[in-house]
């Protein structure tokens, strides 16, 4: 799941690719951005170090695809895509950040592009091609799922 954050006031932006909801307490974290619970706080800290302020940050998230059917009950834990989405939203909420636009779930893969300084977030899918999700620089939300 792609998480793109932009603070237009300080012109500081950042992005991570979250692959799992939470790091494991008994394992070293080799890629801090890989987990929602380590990646989002680390990204915010890095951005703040560069002069960004949470108060002005705007966020877009996209990804979290999932298989369309789990054949049995008790398989909820296997639902990595959905759990990534929940964990990302939980971390962002905890940090007091507002999500301007999101395009999550479904069964299709997405490629997320984030350009600065306009903060344009685009999502590419095989069925829809490239679609603008939002502009984080000026609060414009083009299309949100």
């Amino acid at each position: 799941m792609g998480v793109a954050i932009y603070d237009p006031k300080s012109d500081v932006s950042g992005m991570i690719h979250v692959m799992l909801p939470a790091a494991f307490p008994d394992r070293p974290v080799d890629q801090i951005g890989k987990f929602a619970d380590t990646g989002i706080p680390a990204l915010l800290m890095a951005m703040e170090k560069m002069g960004a302020n949470k108060r002005y940050m705007r966020v877009a998230i996209a990804g979290g695809a999932q298989v369309f059917k789990f054949n049995n009950t008790g398989a909820n834990n296997l639902d990595i895509g959905r759990r990534n989405g929940e964990a990302v939203i939980e971390q962002l909420t905890k940090a007091g950040l507002r999500i301007l636009a999101k395009d999550i779930g479904g069964t299709h893969g997405r490629t997320v592009t984030f350009t600065v300084p306009d903060g344009k977030v685009e999502v590419k899918t095989l069925s829809q091609g490239v679609a603008e999700l939002c502009y984080l620089a000026d609060n414009r939300e083009r299309s949100a799922a």
């Binding site: 692959m19 990804g63 999932q66 298989v67 369309f68 789990f70 054949n71 069964t107 893969g109 095989l126």
Partner: peptide
Amino acid sequence: GFGLGADGLQYALQP
């Protein structure tokens, strides 16, 4: 997300 195609994740998981 490793090399997903048009079929994406349109499959069932058999636990």
